[in-house]
């Protein structure tokens, strides 16, 4: 199995707070790698270090053999690493369809393209693609709605659609089902399973153990900025250290 993403010796401190300490993590191609851990463990911080929102104090993040540290967020996006945020980051003033057209355009047009005389309504191929992804997400009937007026759960699904339409090599999901009703959560799990069948590599941060154990091939547990365990779901389930640190001894 080839390694898509390799995080080596990553450290990050905020003032006196040691948010990440000596993180080492390899993500294998085609796998879904879950990162779990209590609130404030540093999970989102780790993703921020991967996509260029934060620069780690130490260490490297190699994506398909190339070091991503110091690269601009838009360059990292075009390298094929796409992030879905924890608090929905959408374009609230645009319609749902336009929200998905934007990343589709990014994928096609690159970092910058000046095409002021091209008509948006002539972009039928992109539009079909966007509509398809939205229907996949169960947002088919909302495509002309204002994105800002949607429920929080719908916004998360919209953001997932925005990530998927770019067909990334590696998708980073930060709590994709938080704030969703059970029904929508199950639907999202189904969708993520289908994506997995297509071979997309994913990192998924999740608190919902049902989601984690339905999707993950591998799980890493982060607590207080350190990886305390890594392994298959079964190994993690049985690890007393994990139960202690994260689950407070509760039965999984």
């Amino acid at each position: 199995m080839s390694i898509v993403l390799s995080i080596k010796n990553v450290d990050k401190t905020f003032g006196g707070l040691h948010a990440l300490g000596d993180i080492n993590l390899d993500i294998e191609e085609g796998k879904t790698h879950a990162i779990i851990g209590p609130n404030g463990a540093g999970k989102s911080t780790l993703l921020n270090c991967c996509i260029g929102r934060l620069i780690p104090d130490n260490g490297t993040v190699e994506f398909e053999g190339k070091n991503m540290i110091g690269m601009q967020p838009h360059e990292i996006n075009h390298a094929g690493m796409v992030r879905v945020f924890q608090t929905p980051e959408i374009f609230p003033d645009l319609t749902v369809l336009q929200n998905v057209l934007i990343p589709a355009l990014a994928k096609r047009d690159g970092i910058f393209k000046f095409n002021p005389f091209k008509s948006l309504s002539a972009e039928t191929a992109l539009e079909a693609d966007a509509v398809h992804v939205l229907e996949d997400m169960g947002l088919g009937e909302h495509i002309f709605k204002h994105a800002g007026s949607m429920s929080r759960g719908d916004k998360r699904r919209l953001e997932l659609a925005m990530g998927l339409v770019q067909h990334p090599r590696l998708l980073l999901l930060d709590e994709p089902t938080a704030g969703m009703a059970r029904h929508d959560t199950n639907r999202t799990i189904d969708l993520l399973k289908r994506i997995k069948e297509r071979g997309m590599t994913k990192i998924i941060i999740e608190h919902d153990m049902h989601v984690v154990f339905s999707l993950a091939d591998k799980i890493s547990v982060l607590a207080q900025g350190r990886i305390i365990a890594s392994g298959t779901p079964d190994e993690i389930r049985g690890d007393p250290k994990v139960q202690e640190a994260y689950l407070g001894g509760a039965e999984l």
Binding site: I51, L94, I102, A106, K113, F114, Q166
Partner: peptide, 28 residues
Amino acid sequence: LRIFNSPFGLKLRAIKSNQTRMKYTGFN
């Protein structure tokens, strides 16, 4: 009118709506 209806125009509106997101979406 053409700029308003073009992909270029849509991207400009997206910048107005959420510029940070545009960067993580792959735009400079």
